[in-house]
């Protein structure tokens, strides 16, 4: 399974306030999917990520998708299969935008 790395050209940061908001929502069992808690920025292209996206992005430092899923399962209350799909889809999207690359 290939390891996933962030493209070093991409600048990014977390939005602390939005993150706090999202964490609070999650704690109450509410949906925080639409709250952007970080943003990625590269050559005029900007992408906003929600909590899950942010956590996946932060793990793009040489881990593979399976490792990500097992770590995220400890953090989020979701079905393993659903999460696996989400991670795969999200990572593919990042790759398509050139925000990450794979290494064997």
């Amino acid at each position: 399974m290939p390891k996933i790395y962030r493209n070093p050209d991409v600048m990014w940061r977390e939005e602390d306030e939005s993150r706090a908001q999202a964490d609070e929502a999650l704690e109450k069992g509410e949906n925080a999917e639409d709250i952007g808690t970080s943003l990625l920025f590269s050559d005029g292209m900007m992408v906003t990520l929600n909590v899950l996206g942010t956590e996946i992005w932060k793990m793009c430092d040489g881990r593979d998708a399976d490792e990500m899923v097992s770590e995220l399962l400890q953090q989020f209350d979701v079905e393993a299969d659903v999460l696996k799909n989400d991670v795969a889809g999200f990572v593919a999207e990042l790759a398509e935008k050139g925000f990450i690359h794979y290494e064997e």
């Binding site: 600048m11 939005e15 952007g36 929600n50």
Partner: peptide, 12 residues
């Protein structure tokens, strides 16, 4: 995913 939210600081 979001648009109206104001960022904590400018990006650039």
């Amino acid at each position: 995913m979001k648009s109206e939210q104001t960022l904590k600081a400018p990006l650039t």
